[in-house]
Design a protein around this nucleic acid. Sequence first.
DNA 1: AGCTAACGTAAGTATCAACTAACATCAGGC
DNA 2: GCCTGATGTTAGTTGATACTTACGTTAGCT
Lengths: 110, 110
Amino acid sequence: MSVDNQLRALAEPHRRRILELVRDRELAAGEIAAHFDVTRPAISQHLTVLKEAGLIVERRDGARRLYLAEPSGLAGLKKFVDRFWTTSLARLAEEAAAEVGRGESTDRAR
Amino acid sequence: MSVDNQLRALAEPHRRRILELVRDRELAAGEIAAHFDVTRPAISQHLTVLKEAGLIVERRDGARRLYLAEPSGLAGLKKFVDRFWTTSLARLAEEAAAEVGRGESTDRAR
DNA sequence: AGCTAACGTAAGTATCAACTAACATCAGGC
DNA sequence: GCCTGATGTTAGTTGATACTTACGTTAGCT
């Protein structure tokens, strides 16, 4: 549930691909595994990580287990990114204003 | 520069703390290291990772090196999160609409 | 009950990432 | 030029993590 778990879960390329697969449709574990060249248990472990991070939800259907992306699981990460984005942009605006104030017109050194 | 690099860089708690430190002010490598209980070389390596991910920029000032967060480095990740966020929310809206259409009023099983 | 399909779980292995200690580099002051 | 402060780099070690193989579990069918 924490941002730390969310980021660790998303840091793995396979898990990001899984998340894309179940973004707009439910898929069974086996169907998901069929998209990858690693073994089914490996995918099962990835699904567990994603589930514990709150990024997907599991629904049982007989012997099968269907997985679907959980948008609210990204809320914490989204807040983190947005906060960083806006404050940094605000800083840039400040710098730009300061330069205009000094009547600066030439580019600074790279 | 890739989303993969950005996520791998952010997955490390120390690197997130570093990023917070240099979000709205430039700091020298030594000043950053003073905030942590790990050695300076470790911080230097973290700074390299953040720099290669495009999340911070380095500026030389004599023997010192000053670091500052680079907001544009988060653009790719922000796009990734936002895309997921909106499409998943759209899916939720669809489901809700479908349920209303069926005249459903009771909560579904957890 | 017995069989099978679809899974998850456990144990063991190998690869990768974070850390420390020692060394190298670079800029400035004397 | 020499010394010092600030920092990056390299080599080696340890701990985490992604993987495979083997086994356990659950649900449905006959």
